[in-house]
Structures are given as structure tokens and as C-alpha cells.
Design a protein around this nucleic acid. Sequence first.
DNA 1: ACAAAAGTGTTTGATATACACCCATGT
DNA 2: ACATGGGTGTATATCAAACACTTTTGT
Lengths: 252, 252
Amino acid sequence: MLSKEELLAYCAGARKNYLPHISIDCVVFGFHEGVMKVLVLNVEEGEWYLPGGFLLKEEPIETAANRILKERTGLDDIFLQQFYVFGDPERSKEHFEMYKDILPAGENWFTNRFLTIGYYALVDFQDVNPMPDELSISCNWFGLKELPELKLDHTQILNTALDTLRLHLNYQPVGYNLMPKEFTMPELQKLYETILDKKLDRRNFQRRMLSFGILNRSEQQRKGGAHKAPYLYAFNIENYKAALTEGFKGGW
Amino acid sequence: MLSKEELLAYCAGARKNYLPHISIDCVVFGFHEGVMKVLVLNVEEGEWYLPGGFLLKEEPIETAANRILKERTGLDDIFLQQFYVFGDPERSKEHFEMYKDILPAGENWFTNRFLTIGYYALVDFQDVNPMPDELSISCNWFGLKELPELKLDHTQILNTALDTLRLHLNYQPVGYNLMPKEFTMPELQKLYETILDKKLDRRNFQRRMLSFGILNRSEQQRKGGAHKAPYLYAFNIENYKAALTEGFKGGW
DNA sequence: ACAAAAGTGTTTGATATACACCCATGT
DNA sequence: ACATGGGTGTATATCAAACACTTTTGT
């Protein structure tokens, strides 16, 4: 926890640089060892938050989200998807309460009501170097199944992000941003199974995935593991991007 | 156009009551005589805008959207769907320019940079009584094909709303909010064709629509028209709502 | 040699597409 | 009577689901 002086300086800086009443919260998804992970900040003992931040006064929203995530992950050019604005007038009260005994209301940045713009991000787990922000003491990956309870409405934000991601899975390719450059079909399947939280048929998955035409199979196979060596695949970026904009399913 | 005094009063009221930097813009879709219509405001000669407004300081976003639309349409309980936040720092400059010669910057509400939360609304055309807001001189329906060019980024907002609506059509029922209580299958098909901007097969449309189980066929038929009398249908609200939350297509 | 993981293929049912036919009504 | 729009039905292709067999590799 910052000292009162530090907090005052933080609030003064925020008032000077950021738009009031507006924040961004990011649900950063990574995939590692068959588990879906989310980046979570620890402010103090038992206080967990999604990574977030504010908009500079003349900054585009997506730029701000990128900036915030660069600070938390070290990564540029993260795949980001805006998914919802959370604006319950009560949603940030908890944050205000937390600082109201320390800071005079006029000085307290968190006296503001905040609408928060939710983004979800898909990143390659291996590339991320989690770093806490000014207000927190650590930044860590948590498996989806072992998440602590989050403060404010951050659990709701996370669940909405998950729902949105699952929905997107139905008409968009997902995976390029979550997988390493090369991966095997079973590994990709595991990603889908993790996101959807259900088992898929190995053979049907492969057929369907290949039918999208967004994968290139390498000559190479993943050696070293026990059992038969699986082929390595990489995404075909051109087709992948085309599929991202055009979508998969016809619908009507 | 308001007088300077009126504008000053408007701005003072806005500063007092609304959150700064945040607005709401609504794309109100109605369907009439086989044409998709959108509500558009006329501020002055050749200046067209989507209906919009601001958030009261302690007002939930959706409540604000409802309030704004009640003022424009006379309707309560409108079907609303938040679909995107538009936040380009340049997006509201045009609005500022418009008033800068009349109002001192410090007084001018539109000096603010605004992020706008986009909602689309689906309403029964017949129920709407379009009413202009304080800043405009008229509020009218325009067919999608005969829309004037809109100011600010409102054309982009409208197009994004349309894209979202089309997407939703693929996994959600649409129509309850756009159609009168009773309607014929060809009428409903016309709605779909209008939204998608393409022809559908009469017989396949009917089969598919019925397969969703969200329609009740009435004993009655629409008499009076030329040709064979079509059956009247109404939405089965329970199933409709269930389909809204659960969606249609399996996907994975 | 065998267990476990991976590649490939087949059978079956469901769903979508493209049509054809009949019926009712106003002119 | 006939043109037009509306109700219903069928053949075919296409796709998804369920399932079987073979191949490879480490133990």
C-alpha cells in the first residue's frame, strides 16, 4: 500500500492526465500446460483485481488498452477485443471506501464514479513478463479454476469476457494469439477444450479445424515426447486474418 | 438553433447534471412497409444526427439509454443492446467547432472530448411517436437506403450497429421487438431480408423459422389482401426469451 | 509386446439447399 | 381464367457426430 503522500501524488497525477469517470479493465487470457490462465493483480493481502488503467486526455481507447497491457506484460501489439462497458453507479464505491479515510474526497481520484470499458486480450503465455502497477504488489497468472475472488465487479467482468470469447469461438478463429508459433493439433484442441470447458472429439476437431483453411502443416513433427510424434502446425496468417474479418459460419 | 442564452443555459445544465466526456448514441431500428427505418434528428438544414444524450451523474447506462429513447419515441421498455464504445479523440471536434464561436470554451459543454456508448434499439414502428430534442428541429424515420449523410461519426456508428444486428441474427431471435403482435410469415421474412439485404427462399425460411419453436400460429388468417390469405403468427414469448439467452446455433 | 497417443477413414443422421406442386383470392 | 402470392412437400448435397482401425514410440 502506498503512503498517503504517494497516494496524493498519484491522485494529482491522475487528475491531471486522465479523463475522469472512465477506466479500462482488461481480461488477459494466456494458455499454459493445458490450463487457461488470467492475469491478476494483488493490491494487498486478499485484494485481487484485473489489470486496468485510465485514458489519457487525448488518447484513443485502444491505444490506452495497449499501453496499459504493455506495462503489465511487456508486450506490444496485443490482440485486444472490446466487449462491454460496465457502468453501474455503485460499481466503484468499494474503491472509494478503500481510500476515503486516507484521502480527502476532493483529492481522491477514486471519489469519481467510473464507467469501465472491458477488453479481453489473448496473449502467448510464454511471452509475458507479468509486472505489477503502482498500486499493487504483484501481478500473476491464475488458472481459471483457481481464481481468487476479485474485488469490485471484476469477477463479473471476467465472466462476461469468457462468455464473449466462447461466442467468438463460434464464428471466428481463435488461437493465433494464444498459441506459440508452432503447435500440434492436440495442443490446439486442448486450447479449445479449455475455453469451452468441455471435451471435443479428436478426429472431428481436426477435420473441422483443417476445413477452415487457416493452418499450415509443417514437415516436422514434435519429437521427444513418448508415443507417436504429432505434426507441427502454424497459422496461415493471411487466411487467418481473412477469417477474422469474414467469420466462419454462414448463418443466413 | 438555440439562441446564445439558451445554449448557455443548456451547457450549464449539462455540466451540472451529466457526467462529462461520456455520451450515448442510439440507432433506433424500426420496420415499416418492408423497409428498415432509422430514427434521425435534424439539428439544422442538412445536419443530421442519431438520437443521443448524456448520463446523469448517478444513472446506470441502460437507464440513461432508456430515458433518452423514451424522450425521442414516447416508448418505455425498449429493446436495447449495447454494442460498442466509440472513442476517437477527434470524433467530437466537429461538434465543438459548431459552437465555439458562440460559446466561450469554458462554458461550452461540447468543448469536452466525448466517448460515446453505442446502443441499438429495436422498436415497433407503429408505436413510435418521434420527437426532436432540445437542440434539434425534427425527428424522423429514414429508410436505410435513403439516409442522409450523418454528422460526426454517426454514419460509422450506424453501420456498426447494422453489422452487429446482422451478426446477432445468426444466433439469436430477432423480430419480437420489431414486428407488431401479429404478423404473417412473409412479413417476418421481409424483415430478415431487409436486415440482411438479400433475398431468402420462402419455403426454407419458413421451415427454419418454425424449427426454432418461437412462433405460435394463430387460427386466423390475414384477410382482405389479394391472393391467398396467409396465417397470422405471434411470438411465443417464453421460448423467445429462452432463445435470446441461450442462442440458436451450437457452434462447438 | 503393449499401452498410449496420434494419424487417417467410414458410416450415419441431421440440416441446408434447391426445387415443384397445389391452393386461395381479386381482377 | 389467370396472375399472384401463399401453403406444403421432396430430392439432393453438404455437414456434423459417432465410431474403428492403423501407426508410432517409449517402456
